[in-house]
Structures are given as structure tokens and as C-alpha cells.
Amino acid sequence: MVVFAVDTDVAVTGKLIRFDELKGYGFITPDRGTEDVFVHVNDIDMDRALFVPGVRVEFVIEEGDRGLKASDVRMLEAAPASPGGEDPAVSVPVARVEGPADGVDVLTKADLEREATELLLAGVPDLSGGEVVAVRRLILKLAERHNWVES
């Protein structure tokens, strides 16, 4: 287990990576030096409609009963909007490799990896880099098993 020194009562900045509206909590990744910080809906000092993954915030880190906890959370910068207000998972550009005459597209492994990465990052922005790589690897194995990609 990695232990970080944390200055409490000092405002820090970070980005909201997850928030469950029904449960009323989520996690913020600080810009520097600590593990992800728990945040509860009662500690948010901003319009809750704007409290979505990707929003940049300033907050104070406290030592809670179960670890680090954010308080006095204020918005610094709104989350980046997807182009045209569309669902990012739908608006990811897709490059195609010419397939057989029956209209089926066959991608190269590199193209599938790139497109899967773009889709995961746009559609599920709170995934860690390791999670993106793991999901992409599973997608590639599935595609290889069904001959959906060129070797």
C-alpha cells in the first residue's frame, strides 16, 4: 500500500472521475500527489447538474474515517462538452478498411485497437488507463476469434 502525505485544510485542484447521482458520492483525482479522493454530494458547493465526470474542481482534502475525503468542492472549469451535444460514444469517428463485396468491413488489429481506445475514452471517461487496455485486449481477442480483423 502506498501512503501519501496530505496537507489538510489546503485547497487543491483535480478532476471528477466518477459520480453516482443515486448514491450521492464519487471520486476526484487530484492533480498532484495523492490517491483518488472520495466526495459526497453534501460537500459540493456548485450546481449539481454541472458535477459530471471531467469537471475541474478545487477542494480541501480531509482525512475521513475510511480515507481521504474532499470538502468545500467548487467548480473551476466545466467538463468538456461533446461535439454537437451528442453522446460521445456515438460521435467517435470510425475509419474503415475496404471489406469484401458483401459490405462487411474488416479492420486491421491496429485500427481496431485505435478505434476501441477512442470509443472507450469518449464513452466511459472514468476508466483508468489500465482498464482501457484490459477491455481493448478482450475486444481484440474476440475479434480475432471471429476473424473480424486482418492478421
Rank of each mutant, 00 (worst) to 15 (best):
R56I: 01
R114N: 09
V57D: 10
H146V: 15
S82E: 06
D102C: 03
G33P: 04
V132N: 06
L138Q: 14
E58L: 03
T29L: 11
E35M: 00
G103E: 05
E131K: 15
V104P: 00
V135Y: 04
V10Q: 07
W148A: 15
S82N: 09
N147Q: 15
K109I: 05
E58V: 06
E144V: 09
F51K: 11
P88Y: 13
V149E: 06
M75Q: 15
L50P: 00
V73P: 01
D111C: 01
R114K: 13
L112R: 11
V39F: 09
P30Q: 12
A49I: 00
G33Y: 06
G99R: 15
D31L: 09
V2F: 11
T34A: 12
D45G: 01
G67F: 01
R137F: 04
A70L: 02
G14D: 08
A143R: 06
V149N: 12
K141M: 11
R56P: 01
P83S: 09
P80R: 12
T117Q: 11
V3E: 12
H40Y: 07
F51N: 06
G85H: 12
P100A: 08
T117P: 10
V135G: 00
R48M: 12
T29V: 08
L107V: 08
F38C: 01
A70M: 03
N42S: 10
L121F: 08
E77R: 15
G123K: 10
T13A: 11
S128L: 13
G67S: 05
P88A: 12
K141H: 09
G14V: 01
R136I: 01
G33I: 00
G84T: 02
Y25D: 01
D7W: 04
T34K: 00
P30C: 11
V57S: 08
G64P: 03
M1S: 10
L140I: 07
A122M: 08
D45Q: 10
V2G: 08
P88Q: 12
D102E: 04
A78R: 15
D87C: 05
A122V: 06
E35K: 02
A5V: 03
V73I: 02
M1V: 14
P53N: 07
K69S: 14
D87G: 01
V55R: 02
V94P: 05
A11H: 10
E118R: 11
D43S: 09
V12T: 11
V41I: 09
G67H: 02
V6I: 09
L16Y: 06
S91A: 14
V73K: 03
R136S: 12
E144C: 10
G130S: 13
V104D: 03
R66V: 00
D43K: 05
F4K: 06
